[in-house]
């Protein structure tokens, strides 16, 4: 594996882990949902970088599903689970 790509993947992972702090703090449910959306975007980037690093093109399809997942959870949150209390 190219060390530059693994370093890039590790860095993107670190920036994603900053989002856990926002899930812990809140204050509203929307803030926690935003952190989940952050993980969706960074998950796409991680899957694409790892696909290039291990040379397996099929992993890019997993990135497509990550992109869909972020939109799906956001819509489920807005339609069903919104409450400003937590």
């Amino acid at each position: 594996m190219d060390p530059v790509l693994t370093a890039l993947a590790a860095f993107i992972m670190l920036t994603a882990l900053l989002g856990i702090w926002r899930i812990e703090r809140g204050p509203t449910g929307a803030d926690r949902m935003l952190a989940a959306m952050l993980f969706g975007t960074t998950g796409v980037a991680l899957a694409l970088v790892l696909a290039e690093a291990v040379g397996r093109g099929g992993l890019r399809d997993a990135a497509l599903v990550f992109a869909l997942l972020g939109a799906l959870t956001a819509v489920a949150f807005v339609k069903r689970a919104w409450g400003a209390g937590d």
């Binding site: 899930i23 809140g26 989940a36 992993l59 689970a81 937590d86």
Partner: peptide, 19 residues
């Protein structure tokens, strides 16, 4: 609610582990 959001994030990271 917080627990469910954590669960979704856990699923994402587990998928990255499979990748």
């Amino acid at each position: 609610f917080k627990s469910v959001v954590m669960f979704v994030v856990f699923g994402l990271f587990l998928a990255i582990a499979w990748v």
